[in-house]
């Protein structure tokens, strides 16, 4: 128990360190950018003069020494104050909080789809190794692995929304519709389908390949050979003995992929006009709303750090053989 506590403490420390580095990186990057936020805000008013810019600069603390700004910035980040959006006139934290649920809905759905479909496809392929079914699944995952995420999205829209008119192409819910209860859930689900499929496709391919390779590897191990020797059917051997062990690397990978999913959501949310933090970041990008862009970047990193922490812990729980360092 003590060991676990120590392990947790060291992981936590590392995570905090990572976040600190990201905060530092954010701070210096924005100061390396051309133009300053005061000018951007001023530019959007349609006309501007030096006095006005200077006023804004004082108001936003941009005229204080760098080190003071840095100290203030770190203090703010530590208290989840990610700054103020000059453009949207709202605290970045609350903007992100408003957009985060949509992103979580999308990424978690995509993740569940990717793992479920990927693991079962991988298992099926492993069961039919070298046969026709394996070739189809392997080829499919090769293809999905090589396709740009945003392009998959566009092609799905072209097929399911433009050609077949089955599913809505964009957005989170039907504009202006006053659905409640189940109808509302169904409406959102219909909108969720394509983006989640798009985001999940690539990782499905990853998991299919991973599961297949992992199963093939584990099935060469001695205990599996023993099971086989006992005369159990191949299917039973795979499901009872192999799969459980083969899924361990899949869990580790899930942690690593969190970052990829979040990054992918930037593209997918842009393609599908999905109102999550990826879309928020993209809009901020167009407007060069630095505080929002970097705030989203920080929160995305934070989520990845948390997911990694959780998978690390999960891993030690699932597999007691893992030595705690």
């Amino acid at each position: 128990m003590k060991k676990i506590g120590k392990f947790l403490a060291s992981r936590l420390f590392k995570s905090v360190l990572v976040l600190l580095m990201i905060a530092l990186f954010n701070f210096f990057l924005v100061r390396a950018a051309p133009g300053d936020p005061a000018e951007i805000l001023a530019g959007q008013s349609g006309a501007v003069d030096a006095e006005f810019i200077a006023k804004l600069r004082t108001e936003f603390g941009l005229d204080r020494p760098m080190i003071v700004q840095l100290g203030q910035y770190l203090k703010n980040v530590a208290t989840f104050d990610l700054g103020y959006s000059y453009r949207q006139q709202a605290p970045v934290t609350s903007l992100i909080a408003e957009h985060l649920p949509a992103t979580l809905l999308l990424t978690i759905t995509a993740f569940i789809f990717a793992v479920a479909a990927g693991v079962s496809l991988g298992t099926q392929a492993a069961l039919r190794v070298g046969k026709w079914g394996d070739t189809v699944i392997t080829t499919f995952s090769m293809l999905a692995y090589a396709t740009p995420l945003f392009w998959v999205g566009l092609m799905l829209v072209l097929l399911f929304s433009v050609k077949l008119e089955w599913l809505p192409a964009f957005g989170y819910q039907t504009v202006g519709a006053q659905f409640t209860g189940l109808a509302h859930v169904m409406d959102v689900a219909r909108h969720l389908l394509l983006p989640a499929l798009t985001l999940g496709m690539f990782y499905m391919a990853v998991y299919a390949r991973l599961t297949r390779a992992s199963i093939l590897e584990v099935s060469q191990l001695d205990f599996v050979k023993t099971a086989r020797a006992k005369g159990l059917s191949e299917r039973t051997v795979i499901t009872r003995h192999v799969l459980r062990n083969a899924l361990l690397p899949v869990i580790t990978y899930a942690g690593i992929q969190a970052g990829g999913l979040i990054g992918g959501s930037l593209l997918v949310e842009t393609v599908f006009a999905w109102p999550g933090i990826g879309r928020l970041a993209f809009d901020a990008l167009l407007q060069r709303d630095y505080s929002v862009l970097l705030g989203v970047f920080f929160i995305a990193s934070l989520i990845v750090v948390i997911v990694n922490l959780v998978t690390d812990i999960l891993y030690t729980v699932v597999d007691p053989r893992i030595e705690l360092k």
Partner: peptide, 11 residues
């Protein structure tokens, strides 16, 4: 040029 760069460079 982004919004900032555009206005700044013109100015």
């Amino acid at each position: 040029a982004d919004v900032g760069g555009w206005t700044t460079r013109m100015g």
